[in-house]
Design a protein around this nucleic acid. Structure first.
Length: 924
RNA sequence: GCCCGGGUGGUGAAAUUGGUAGACACGCAAGACUUAAAAUCUUGUUCGCUGUAAAGCGAGUGCGGGUUCAAUUCCCGCCCCGGGCACCA
């Protein structure tokens, strides 16, 4: 009987579907385990073999946990709102809703072929009104909340109103406007429009005017993590700063908790580093410098700077303020007015991209000075774009001997440099050390800089000219997009006041819209729909939410996907709790993962769920690269030269479809038919063969190196495909795809099949009990495979199976008693073949619900070991020695060996090292 | 520039706590079966040297040093590759 994988896999995929084999319910009698994949954006390109890597790993782990008796939640869905569908619609005139559905059908059919154990009854689609109803509902929760800094948690905005009525905002400083201070009386006398304006500055989801990343080509704003080197992550279009009214998430209020939460989760160090750096916490001081020039108004008598190095205050040679700094107009001296204006104009003309590409040293002197509070020295105030308005106070004290940027600036503008670190400063470059002893530093003289930091902070606070301050690099996240294909906001504007709609009005459905051209004044396409726009005496918000809105909470919806009255019942979220294992790529390090961590914390603070970190453990799968093939066309000809001879010609390299190449050998006839351009190609061959060049690069359509999992499954079967993806190497690692290597895994599966079936004789597995040697092989394998699976080392687990099959074949083991246990442990990796054989050998029930076997240690007890015996660390012989042997026994045995005697040359050894169960080393 | 990963045969890789480097595969070579092919099986395969063989000797985990009886593993310095951040004061 042959192994007919196509029929077997089709049969079981249908049977499992019919029997709802993967349906999971909230069963409190079993321990739960939640395994989650980052759900895909259903792009038109479909899946290539790189995509399922993480899905296969999580599927294996889910099935393993299920066999171990866990109630496993393993859902899948689609992140189906987003820019590409909209762009596709603009280019091809197909409505996003239609192209998205089509893409999802394609994804689904590809996923189904691989045999995943998803409970499809729990599928979510972020663009489905049943889903985004709750995205909008969570938005309302964010809108109706503020962050209580003392309690470090989100609270209802109504609580804040109570506080304002009683005491104003003196004890609850405004996160959106540091200068905003009002009393209870002032609050109570204000009109409702004034009050709304104030509350907006506290809300966790708020509307404000700010500098945003505007992408003209995409016609929308982008979040910081969607902009890479001044261009859009998607499409690579230029991005400029623009002032726009926008919705934001006040994620900065959660900076501290997002940081602290990292200590409680199991993410890779690099992932934690990325998030930590993005949050960018730093400790330092805000220091007030008195402005010395007479031409300043009383309200601007001080310049506030932020520094992490208050110990260097005697080394301050100039101040630098950002071009956007509010003091510029008041402090600029009449003589410098023109120069300053010209400079500001120049700065405005430069795009973000230009600033990043050419880091020129630019700046202008304001004409004003401030005074060093400790020695009264006058310090010139400069304006330069290298100081960022959005960070700290938008002003710095420049210490050229200790800071590279300050040093270069001082050099460029010939500003004299004060040396406060003696020998540590060589005059050619700044030295940011903290190890120097301070000089020229007044009361700090002689102190080690690292000690002087605390000392100077104390002094500044004592004198009331400065205070300790913690800053974060992270900014509030832009939360609106001027696009169509996203969640509409449940907001109506009346008299410039944002009115939240009642949760009973949800979902606010996205209206159908055939023409997706932008609306007027950088508004989204929804602004073109007057009948939709006008609502209840006001105007609807026309922006839509960004892609990360729906993905910030989808893991909760899977727990209770059909719920019409809640986003997720508390009973469901209490039962399933945190995601135990989350698998996905690193590209979401600072976007999705941070937002979704924040939303979880807010929902926790407001009492909707019982945990405040969504993902207990995160595993990042690597990317699978494509192995491209290249042909070389002799320039200006139709001749193609084989790779080995190409250096003799001037050639252009062309990517060729990998399916036209066997190894490196080109199918020349196939190549001619591939594209009309090549139909009359001629070849300069090596002995009649055309060899292609190769290159490892991203798997992508334009390199013609995409391998479709459908083709692999058709040729080798899903079970082989699954195991081969795992066998390629560690899941976390990037690695190239090589279709040839799959033969080894396919051979293994067929060899496994032959333990049960013979081509002529049919079933050869028997009821005869297995011998001890076979059991030993099996339990050794079980131990290895289980340990490896548990630690996500799937590649070595596959090799464990291979060793097991090889050894059982050698032992001629066909015992059903043993092999049925083998079937169970192989099931997570190769479910179809295992279920088929399980039924063939007459087992009742599905193998999916079998119980995982337990290692019987009695078969693994060893009485002796093959010890490597080394001389001076170099292994010379192997000796079989009883495990109970003592040091003296071992020494006697070793010294008797002629091979060892040869090395000793008659002399006694210096020492004999004996590590039980490990090795023996003779030192001479 | 800063912060993370990583560098092991022709290739993918293994070595979990400092203890036999290269498991398991691919590829390649030789052979068996076959009219032939596919499939399957057997043997060999880190490199160099000696040997008909069995075997032996030497080198070897990016480079240079160190600690140790023993280093792919720990320490110091450097080189290269991948990823992230980047005027964050």
């Amino acid at each position: 009987m042959e192994y007919g994988f196509s029929a077997i896999e089709k049969k079981w995929q249908e049977a499992w579907k019919m029997n709802n084999a993967y349906r999971v319910s909230n069963d409190p009698s079993k321990p739960k385990y939640y395994v989650l994949d980052m759900f895909p954006y259903p792009s038109g390109a479909g899946l290539h073999v790189g995509h399922p890597l993480g899905y296969i790993a999580s599927d294996i782990f889910s099935r393993y946990k299920r066999l171990k008796g866990f109630n496993v939640l393993h859902p899948m869905g689609y992140d189906s709102f987003g820019l590409p569908a909209e762009q596709y619609a603009i280019e091809h005139g197909i409505a996003p809703a239609i192209s998205t559905d089509r893409n999802i059908d394609n994804f689904r059919s590809q996923l189904d072929k691989i045999g995943f154990c998803y409970d499809w009854d729990r599928e979510v689609r972020t663009s489905n009104p049943n889903y985004y109803k709750w995205t909008q509902w969570i938005f309302l929760q964010l809108f109706d909340s503020w962050f209580d800094r003392k309690a470090q948690k989100a609270r209802s905005i109504n609580d804040l109103i109570v506080i304002f009525k009683a005491e104003g905002n003196t004890n609850t400083p405004c996160p959106g406007d540091k200068k905003l201070v009002f009393s209870a009386a002032e609050w109570n006398s204000g009109d409702s429009s004034k009050q709304s304006e104030i509350l907006m500055k506290y809300r966790l989801a708020f509307c404000g005017v700010g500098e945003v990343n505007w992408c003209e080509a995409l016609g929308t704003v982008l979040a910081n993590d969607e902009v890479i080197n001044g261009v859009s992550e998607r499409g690579g279009h230029p991005v400029v700063k623009k002032k726009l009214r926008q919705w934001y998430l006040r994620i900065t209020e959660y900076a501290e908790r997002l940081l602290a939460g990292l200590q409680t989760v199991d993410f890779s160090d690099s992932m934690k580093d990325m998030q930590t750096n993005w949050i960018g916490k730093s400790f330092g001081a805000e220091i007030d410098f008195e402005i010395a020039a007479a031409n300043t108004s009383a309200s601007a008598s001080h310049l506030k700077v932020y520094t992490t190095r208050p110990d260097t205050i005697f080394g301050v040679d100039f101040m630098v303020i950002a071009p956007e700094h509010e003091l510029i107009t008041t402090i600029t001296s009449p003589e410098q007015k023109k120069a300053v204006e010209e400079y500001l104009e120049y700065v405005n003309s430069r795009s973000e991209r230009e600033r990043m590409a050419e880091k020129k040293i630019t700046g202008v002197f304001s004409g004003a000075y401030c005074k060093n509070p400790f020695n009264g020295v006058l310090i010139p105030i400069w304006i330069s774009e290298y100081v960022l308005a959005g960070y700290g106070t938008g002003a710095i004290m420049a210490v050229p001997c200790g800071d590279e940027r300050d040093f270069k600036f001082a050099q460029h503008f010939s500003i004299p440099i004060t040396n406060i670190i003696g020998q540590f400063f060589n005059g050619n470059e700044a030295n940011p050390t903290k190890e120097a002893r301070l000089e020229n530093s007044g009361f700090l003289d002689g102190l080690l800089m690292s000690d002087a930091i605390t000392f100077s902070l104390d002094k500044l606070e004592e004198l009331g000219i400065g205070k300790r301050q913690t800053n974060y690099k992270m900014r509030d996240a832009a939360f609106s997009r001027q696009r169509y294909w996203g969640e509409p906001f449940p907001i109506v504007w009346k008299n410039d006041i944002a009115i939240p709609l009642s949760s009973t009005a949800l979902p606010i459905e996205l209206p159908e819209l055939s023409d997706l051209k932008p609306g007027p004044d950088a508004q989204g396409p929804l602004a073109n729909l007057p009948e939709w726009l006008s609502y209840d005496g006001g105007a609807r918000e026309v922006n839509t939410m960004p892609g990360y809105a729906g993905s910030s909470w989808y893991f909760l919806r899977y727990m209770d996907p059909q719920n019409d009255s809640e986003f997720c019942s508390r009973a469901a979220s209490d039962y399933w709790g945190q995601v135990d294992l989350y698998i996905g790529g690193t590209e979401h390090a600072v976007g999705h993962l941070l937002y979704s961590r924040m939303w979880t914390k807010v929902l926790f603070d407001l009492g909707h769920i019982g945990f405040d970190e969504p993902y207990k453990r995160l595993v990042n799968q690597g990317k699978i690269g494509g192995d491209s093939r290249l042909v070389y066309r002799v320039r200006n000809s139709k001749q193609f030269v084989s790779a080995g001879l190409k250096d003799d010609y001037e050639t252009d390299e062309i990517h060729v479809d990998v399916s036209l190449v066997d190894g490196f050998l080109l199918d020349m006839e196939g190549f001619k038919k591939w594209k009309p351009d090549f139909s009359d190609a001629t070849f300069i061959t090596e002995d009649g063969e055309y060899k292609c060049g190769a290159r490892l690069e991203k798997m992508s359509k334009r390199y013609f190196n995409v391998v479709n999992p459908d083709d692999i499954v058709e040729k080798y079967g899903a079970d082989t495909f699954r195991m081969y993806e795992m066998f390629l190497g560690p899941v976390e690692q990037d690695k190239p795809w090589d279709t040839k290597g799959i033969e080894g895994v396919h051979r293994f599966i067929r060899k496994f099949w032959r333990l049960f079936f013979d081509a002529e004789k049919g079933l050869v597995a028997t009821q005869t009990p297995a011998d001890a040697a076979s059991w030993k092989v099996f339990y050794k394998m079980l131990k290895k495979v289980e340990e490896d699976t548990a630690r996500f080392s799937f590649n070595t687990a596959v090799s464990g199976f291979m060793i097991g099959v090889n050894e059982l074949t050698d032992l001629n083991c066909h015992s059903i008693e043993l092999l049925k246990k083998f079937l169970i442990i192989l099931t997570p990796y190769a479910p179809h073949i295992c279920e088929e054989i399980w039924q063939q050998i007459g087992e009742v029930g599905s193998i999916l619900d079998a119980s995982y076997p337990v290692v019987d240690e009695t078969y693994l007890v060893e009485t002796s070991k093959e010890y490597p015996v080394a001389v001076n660390g170099k292994t010379r012989i192997i000796l079989n020695i009883d495990l109970n042997a003592t040091q003296a026994d071992v020494e006697a045995l070793v010294l008797k060996e002629p091979m060892i005697a040869k090395w000793l040359e008659g002399k006694p050894p210096k020492k004999i090292i004996f590590v039980k169960n490990k090795m023996i080393n003779v030192v001479i």
